Deep mutational scan, measured.
Amino acid sequence: EVTIKANLIFANGSTQTAEFKGTFEKATSEAYAYADTLKKDNGEYTVDVADKGYTLNIKFAG
C-alpha cells in the first residue's frame, strides 16, 4: 500500500491537501477522480507530478 499526496491549489490562492491510499494505480486514479469532481466549481486543472508520482500538485484555473 502506498499513499499519494495531492496538493490542491485553487485560483483564489487557498490550498488543501488530500491523501489517497491503496496500490499506486488505485490511489493515483482516486486522486485524479477527486480533482475531476472539483473541476465543476473550480475550473480546469493542471497537474505537476513530483516525488516520482507520489505527490501531485493540482492547480485549478478558477
Rank of each mutant, 00 (worst) to 15 (best):
T17S: 10
I9H: 12
V49Q: 08
E25V: 06
V2F: 06
N42I: 06
F10N: 03
T46L: 09
N7F: 11
A50G: 10
I58F: 14
L38T: 02
T17I: 14
T55M: 11
E19A: 08
A27L: 01
T28W: 13
A35I: 11
S29A: 13
A31K: 00
A61I: 08
E30M: 14
F24N: 03
Y54E: 06
N57A: 05
K39N: 04
T17Q: 10
L8D: 00
K39S: 07
N12F: 06
Y45W: 12
Y32E: 03
T3F: 07
A61W: 08
A6N: 01
A33S: 11
A35W: 01
L56Y: 04
T37C: 06
T28N: 07
G62S: 12
Y32G: 02
V49G: 04
Y32W: 09
E44C: 06
A33M: 13
K26Q: 12
E25D: 11
I58V: 10
D51P: 02
F10W: 11
K52G: 13
T37L: 09
T23Q: 14
I9L: 13
I9Q: 11
E44D: 11
F10S: 03
I4Q: 00
T55I: 14
N42H: 15
K39P: 02
A6E: 03
A33G: 09
Q16A: 14
V47P: 02
T37Y: 09
T15C: 05
A35S: 06
V2N: 06
E19P: 04
L8K: 00
Y54L: 15
Y45A: 02
F20C: 02
D41Q: 13
F24G: 03
Y32N: 03
N42G: 06
F60A: 00
A27T: 03
T46Q: 07
I4W: 02
G43S: 03
K59W: 08
D36C: 04
E19H: 13
T46N: 09
E44L: 15
A31L: 08
E30F: 08
S14P: 10
I4V: 12
A50T: 07
F10K: 04
Y32H: 08
A50R: 13
G62D: 10
A50V: 09
N42Y: 15
K40G: 13
F10H: 04
V49I: 11
Y45M: 03
Y34K: 04
A33Q: 10
G13A: 06
N57S: 07
A6R: 00
K26C: 05
T23V: 14
Y45T: 02
A18W: 12
K59D: 04
I58T: 01
E44I: 10
K39Y: 06
